[in-house]
């Protein structure tokens, strides 16, 4: 069964500045939805409004057509990878995987560079490895959808390729909403791409659309 996550009717203002006004976003399980936009356009704000950690004057977040409030308290529906590191520094890799009830051998098979890292604290990992652990737990933990805010930050090109491959496999189990400035990587793996500009979402189909909307220069 295909599940849907839809967000619209979102209005967000910071003082006199309108951040989000005309939003429509639809994600489906089994698909990766990309969200592009320049700095300060409100991509992270939009994700936080969907999650319920940022209050907007109005919004409608629907799972399978049913309006759902406080989505942040429903990790079975939606998981969120923030753009900063969120795993407590003092934890070891094995503790993190235990907390999320994930198997270490599976993780090690997927990312062999973690073979000797079972007992390492996450703070002793490189920035790319730390991010890899975070992406893994969010993508692998059972839920209908996952939102990833700048997942490719801190990753080297080889790690990015592995993560892209991993996300393409995992989309069979959930729907992803991903935002990142590395738009080429995002375009590679996305089924649908929205561009957020001037508080509005624009559904784009080709890179030419992104050029027309002023996001890239071809």
């Amino acid at each position: 069964m295909i599940h849907t996550l839809e967000a619209d009717g979102i209005q967000l203002d910071f003082g006199l500045r309108r951040i989000l006004s005309d939003i429509y976003l639809k994600c489906e399980t089994g698909k990766i939805t990309g969200l592009l936009g320049r700095n300060g356009q409100g991509k992270s704000c939009l994700m936080n409004v969907i999650l319920g950690t940022l209050n907007s004057s109005s919004n409608s977040v629907r799972f399978d057509g049913t309006v759902t409030r406080n989505v942040g308290k429903r990790p079975d529906l939606l998981l969120y990878l923030p753009q900063f590191n969120f795993i407590p520094k003092s934890l070891k890799v094995k503790q993190v995987l235990d907390d999320f009830q994930l198997s270490y051998p599976d993780f090690e098979n997927r990312f062999p560079e973690f073979k000797e890292k079972y007992n390492s604290k996450v703070s002793h990992l490189s920035g790319g490895q730390w991010r890899t652990v975070e992406i893994y737990i969010i993508a692998k933990t059972p839920s209908l959808f996952a939102m990833l805010d700048e997942p490719f930050t801190h990753l080297n090109p080889i790690q990015i390729d592995k993560i892209k491959e991993f996300l393409l496999e995992e989309k069979a189990n959930k729907g992803f909403l991903i935002t990142d400035h590395m738009y080429e990587h995002l375009l590679d793996i996305s089924d649908t791409v929205y561009l957020l500009k001037d508080g509005k979402t624009h559904l784009t189909k080709t890179i030419q659309d992104l050029d027309d909307l002023g996001y890239v220069r071809l």
Binding site: G72, P75, Y80, P82, F86, F100, I138
Partner: peptide
């Protein structure tokens, strides 16, 4: 001071 870590607990269903 540990507001980033709140997302960890939130992902595990603890508010």
């Amino acid at each position: 001071y540990k507001k980033n870590e709140q997302y960890y607990y939130q992902s595990l269903g603890i508010s």
